[in-house]
Amino acid sequence: MPPPSFPVVPAGHRRWQLARLLPGLLTGVPAVATAFALHAVIPALPAMTLAVVLGLLAANLPGSGTWVAGRARPGLDFSGKHLMRAGIVVLGLKVSVPDVLGLGWMALLLIAGVVLASFAGTYGISRLFRLPREASLLIATGFSICGASAIGAMAAVRRIRHVDTVLPVALVTLCGTLAIGVLPLLTHPLQLSPEVFGAWTGASVHDVGQVVATAQTAGTSALAIAVVVKLTRVILLAPMVAAAGLQQRFTARRASRRTPDETAGGFVSSDSAFPPLVPLFVLGFLAMVVLRSTGWLSPGWLDAGNALQELLLGMALFGLGSAVRIRTLLHTGSRALLAALASWFLIAVLGLTAALLMIPS
């Protein structure tokens, strides 16, 4: 029996693909560098939020809009999809299981409860505002777990089109930025201690960078607990995505049994059409969590991983932001904006309740 043959991609085709992607990838590099530079000057503005904003500007200014919609589009779409997944893998290096367990079982149960209630509540609110199921799922995932990273993970496992992630990413960025300005103003009226404020921030603000920008206004003790609580939410990304993959696979299997296969006169039974239960990049994320938890990595390696993760997600978020057209967003996004604000308020209330129970006064 002859050995199995595998398709070989011609070198010329690979060069052509790289030539298509290069303009968009090179466009993202100076944009992300600008986002980091602005963050260094104004630390309250997270670099990831700035990357999305710069993408929005690039898409809607007269000169650059033509470029990002034309020659640069393939590379920007590649960034929004594939670099996002790579960034999620490296994000696992931020999560240490001993740090998470150090919160105690009561705190872990409260955080898990906030995530589940936030997810269900946000999905319900989005559907109440008559948003599509896919958009509602992505908004609920991003708001309840870890912002744009969670949206990218859920979109991948549910095979949701890249273009359909743009509005949820814009909304989660907007509401996370809103939290940076609003939550610190409520510290004194609500008479919150720095520790309670930090737990509230970690339990309710969407993106890790936005959590840091918000919590640092109350000092180092608030920042320390905010990061651990937030990263506990991040680690729940894996089981949530796995559950979504299981449900998607079950649905696909049921549909295959009902769909006649015209070529064979029977029913489709191949598993090739089924989505994976857990995508490879989620397994990579879990592997990075385990690696971080072993304590083998030096601070230098962790700093390098953090820089790589921010670069990858910055490129991905710039690519996603560059797909947003303000006119389209204003025309179709009014109901989505109201749903997002209602969800943001719900999560803030849930997070504050959990923080008050988690940190005794």
Score class of each variant (00 low, 15 high):
17 Q>T: 11
238 A>W: 11
139 I>N: 08
123 Y>T: 05
48 M>W: 02
126 S>F: 03
87 G>W: 02
251 T>A: 15
286 L>V: 12
254 R>H: 12
156 A>Q: 12
220 T>Q: 14
221 S>Y: 10
61 L>H: 13
148 A>Q: 01
9 V>F: 08
174 L>E: 04
74 P>Y: 01
229 V>Y: 07
123 Y>S: 07
80 G>L: 02
138 L>V: 07
90 V>K: 00
181 G>I: 05
92 G>A: 11
17 Q>V: 13
361 S>T: 15
200 W>E: 08
213 A>V: 04
248 Q>I: 05
264 A>D: 11
325 R>A: 10
295 G>L: 06
294 T>D: 05
125 I>L: 15
251 T>F: 09
255 A>K: 12
41 V>P: 12
288 M>S: 06
15 R>L: 14
209 G>K: 04
42 I>V: 15
340 A>T: 10
170 A>E: 00
199 A>S: 09
81 K>Q: 13
220 T>N: 15
317 L>E: 00
261 D>K: 05
105 W>S: 15
113 G>Y: 06
204 S>A: 15
144 S>H: 07
187 T>Q: 14
215 A>M: 03
32 V>K: 09
61 L>Q: 11
176 G>K: 01
237 L>F: 03
243 A>H: 08
34 T>R: 13
142 G>R: 02
247 Q>F: 15
13 H>L: 14
142 G>H: 00
268 V>W: 07
231 L>I: 10
331 H>Y: 04
64 S>M: 04
56 L>S: 06
309 Q>Y: 08
18 L>R: 10
56 L>K: 04
274 F>P: 02
265 G>S: 01
245 G>V: 03
81 K>H: 11
267 F>P: 00
44 A>Q: 14
139 I>V: 14
136 S>E: 02
272 S>D: 12
44 A>V: 12
45 L>K: 08
237 L>G: 02
276 P>F: 05
342 A>G: 15
260 P>W: 00
262 E>P: 07
58 A>N: 04
67 W>K: 01
110 L>M: 06
97 V>E: 03
321 G>E: 03
247 Q>G: 15
251 T>L: 11
348 A>Q: 09
146 C>A: 08
216 Q>W: 09
76 L>W: 09
62 P>I: 08
342 A>T: 13
131 L>T: 04
206 H>G: 06
178 L>M: 13
102 G>P: 05
153 A>D: 01
185 L>C: 08
248 Q>L: 11
120 A>M: 12
85 R>E: 10
157 V>H: 02
323 A>C: 07
290 V>K: 07
139 I>R: 03
59 A>N: 04
95 V>W: 07
202 G>P: 05
357 L>M: 11
14 R>N: 10
116 L>H: 03
172 V>P: 00
210 Q>R: 04
201 T>M: 08
65 G>H: 01
24 G>V: 08
281 F>C: 11
187 T>R: 15
311 L>Q: 09
255 A>D: 13
317 L>Q: 00
177 T>A: 12
157 V>W: 03
231 L>D: 07
161 R>E: 13
344 W>C: 12
197 F>C: 09
255 A>T: 09
178 L>W: 03
1 M>L: 14
68 V>K: 00
265 G>Q: 00
150 A>G: 06
202 G>M: 08
6 F>M: 01
299 P>H: 06
144 S>F: 06
359 I>A: 04
196 V>R: 10
316 A>M: 07
282 V>P: 01
